[in-house]
């Protein structure tokens, strides 16, 4: 399993559109991908769940990938976070 802690810098937080893009990116990998905030974890492949976290600017999230292609998934998703959020 790989894990990354990341603080959101986008002033708008994880709002609908980047949530959608993140979900699309996560869905491209076979491994499990979760996003955790304040102890609540959601499946990063589901937009309603990701949006329900209500992540705002300055909040820390934990991204976890576990299973097949977990390294590739972590690389791609951490890059997405840094570039977009």
């Amino acid at each position: 399993m790989r894990e990354l802690k990341y603080v959101i810098t986008d002033p708008m937080g994880i709002h609908a559109r980047p949530a959608g893009e993140l979900v699309k990116a996560a869905a491209g990998f076979p491994c499990n991908v979760t996003i955790e905030k304040d102890g609540r974890a959601v499946d990063a492949k589901r937009i309603m769940g990701v949006m329900s976290l209500g992540v705002k600017c300055g909040m820390e999230i934990t991204l976890k990938t576990a299973g097949e292609q977990e390294d590739a998934a972590m690389d791609a998703l951490s890059k997405f976070l840094k570039e977009n959020l």
Binding site: R17, G20, V23, K45, R46, I47
Partner: peptide
């Protein structure tokens, strides 16, 4: 576009 994604959401 966001509406389209919501319709495809697995939870939904």
């Amino acid at each position: 576009e966001v509406h389209q994604m919501m319709l495809d959401d697995l939870d939904y």
